[in-house]
Design a protein around this nucleic acid. Structure first.
Lengths: 239, 239
DNA sequence: GTATAATTAAAACATTCGTTTGAAACGGTT
DNA sequence: AACCGTTTCAAACGAATGTTTTAATTATAC
């Protein structure tokens, strides 16, 4: 087995196992077992589990954000100095992601679900890695949106961009979590339909009227939980 | 130290540590150390780490969804048979959540961030637990939305509800993940402002025009990553 | 005050993890 | 064929984890 094959098989196996069970719960033994390679191969080819994770994201994320920036470049070139339509900007950013998420055979689907979940990943090194990988694309798209929406405060645009990212991430990665909740599972087989649905939702949200009184307060004040373990001490069975 | 105190201190410590480092990376030793109790206390009072996690969610989630349902009950009673305004329904569902998230002193803020991240938690037992805890509230709010939006296909409503949940979860829990990305950190100190911003975004998305052609396809086809490790095998330093 | 149950405490348990080791197998070059 | 760097392999390492055990301590009831 050639070196590149081994690397690839490890990455592919890790991708789907991380997606299924998370980073910590996925052991190197399961990864290498699933990939059909020796346990030591991970440390040999990547150096550590952490480095494996980074390489796993790098190999897809770099491409993804390059596509996004290229699409934005094309839009701005076509517009010739004039601001680009907001819906076009969103299509460039989210369309590429949904496209990748629709690619089930090549693993893009798995990766995008993993990525969506990783946005809220607590571990520091993943977060800082994502931050670096995303910084250029995010800032350029923000700038484009600010230009495209004169009159809208840029803070508001940032927040809405934040909301949109969340909606997309959940649409892709949280699908089965919420399918359990839903009595009738949502059909996510048609990537095109998801794209159309998400896009009109996002554009609706982006173009929503600005909140009237920004200092308007939240309905009522919250209470701490009501400890219910009434009297009876919760006994744990012993052997 | 009374039993109830020990339980409470464990739960509180676990909540903030789980939020900070995730479930797997948070050890019982850190939890009990942070709570100032003995290591064995967790297994004595809760039975297992898994059961601790479930109790942690139960104590807040039950109250949260009761509040949501009570708010919906009031709305429907006030409407007297007529459909409730969609924006009102959203306020009932998301307002309670944002309210809880604004409660920093009582731990509601920490919990809501943890909850948001947990929607995409891979581990099976957490998912099935959440599903059960949410099922009533979700189905009742869905029904209310379907009534409130005649003419809109219920599938579309379900999807948008899904999107909205994602936007809210990220607004609350993914905040610092995206703050790293953002060059200027978003100010989330004002819970009321967040609420107003989120609400107008959500209502805008919910009321957006329906996607024109639902079978419309995604822009271009995706490519697998471009393996960049040109020739040079990546050597790992050995001792 | 004494008996009885509930809780805390310290120590050890078995397992599992990521990583390292040193030798064997492989591939290409001369 | 003999060499040499690369890759694979089985085995082991030390550390850390959730859990259990047994004894000491505290609270509660009679």
């Amino acid at each position: 087995m050639s070196e590149i094959d081994t690397r690839q098989r490890i990455l592919d196996a890790a991708e789907s196992l991380f997606m299924e069970h998370g980073f910590e719960a996925t052991t190197l033994r399961r990864i290498t077992g699933h990939a059909g390679v020796n346990l030591a191969a991970v440390n040999y080819h990547f150096g550590s589990k952490e480095a494996l994770i980074q390489e796993l994201f790098r190999r897809r994320l770099t491409w993804l954000n390059e596509q996004r920036l290229a699409a934005l470049d094309r839009l701005e070139a076509d517009a010739g100095g004039a601001p680009v339509k907001p819906s076009r900007i969103l299509e460039a950013f989210f369309g590429v992601a949904v496209t990748m998420a629709a690619d089930r055979a090549g693993g893009g689907h798995t990766f995008m679900r993993l990525l969506g979940r990783t946005y809220t990943e607590p571990s520091a090194f993943v977060r800082s890695f994502l931050a670096e990988e995303y910084s250029e694309a995010i800032s350029r798209f923000k700038r484009a949106l600010v230009r495209a929406l004169p009159g809208v405060p840029s803070d508001e645009i940032f927040w809405r961009f934040h909301f949109m990212l969340g909606a997309m991430a959940y649409a892709i990665s949280g699908a089965d979590a919420l399918n359990i909740i839903a009595e009738k599972p949502l059909d996510e087989s048609d990537g095109g339909a998801l794209y159309a649905r998400l896009m009109s939702f996002l554009i609706g949200g982006l173009r929503a009227p600005l909140p009237a009184g920004l200092s308007q307060s939240v309905p009522t004040s919250p209470r701490k939980q009501s400890q219910k373990s009434a009297g009876k001490p919760r006994l744990v069975k012993r052997a």
